[in-house]
């Protein structure tokens, strides 16, 4: 879209990506993130999202329609996070929704620059996260298909368990907290 260089929030953190014993941490940057608000019972709204983003909005609290983009994560009774493969898709998606849903009561905000994703994988991933998070991360309780907003080491995050065998988890974090959280996770992985 321009000659200007894209800089991800974690471009300047020393030690990333990290590969330790039973734990890997990488930034999954430059994906598309759209914050979506609307009524779950509004069929026009849900159909437009399905048609535009190719995902069906999960209605059960703390669930996700998938683990890889495109997917939608439940954030609240009228709020979702749409994850799309790239930030260009997010901009396109928001424009398309605005056009398709003119006159409907809804909101779509492109927040691709507002947050980034840290992917933790390996046998120790959940233990590392437990050092900063009070949520029950047992794989039997918090497995693929679920998601949760919670605190991680004093930052607000969204957790998304992956479908891999090792029980990896993605951590969606706000851009301004990302540098702090990445350093914290690296320290906790030592």
């Amino acid at each position: 879209m321009s000659e200007i260089e894209l800089r991800t929030p974690l471009v300047a953190v020393p030690g990333l990506p990290y590969r330790g014993r039973d734990i890997e941490i990488v930034e999954v940057a430059s994906q598309g993130h759209v914050n979506l608000r609307g009524a779950a019972r509004n069929a026009v709204f849900k159909d437009a999202v399905q048609a535009t983003a190719g995902v069906s909005l999960p209605l059960a609290a703390n669930t996700a329609s998938g683990t890889q983009p495109p997917c939608a994560l439940w954030l609240g009774p009228d709020e979702w996070l749409l994850r799309l493969p790239g930030e260009a898709q997010a901009a396109t998606c928001v424009d398309a929704l605005d056009a398709a849903l003119a006159g409907e009561f809804f909101a779509a905000s492109d927040i691709s620059s507002a947050q980034t994703v840290l992917r933790l994988s390996g046998a120790h991933a959940r233990r590392v996260l437990s050092k900063g998070c009070t949520l029950d991360l047992h794989p039997g309780v918090f497995g693929a298909g679920r998601c949760a907003q919670t605190n991680m080491a004093q930052a607000t995050v969204i957790l998304l368990p992956l479908a891999d065998a090792a029980g990896g988890i993605e951590v969606v974090v706000r851009r301004s907290f990302a540098d702090y959280l990445a350093r914290w996770l690296l320290d906790a992985s030592r």
Partner: peptide, 10 residues
């Protein structure tokens, strides 16, 4: 009422 049991810190 939506997310279930969570720690007070949330």
């Amino acid at each position: 009422p939506w997310c279930g049991q969570r720690d007070q810190t949330e």
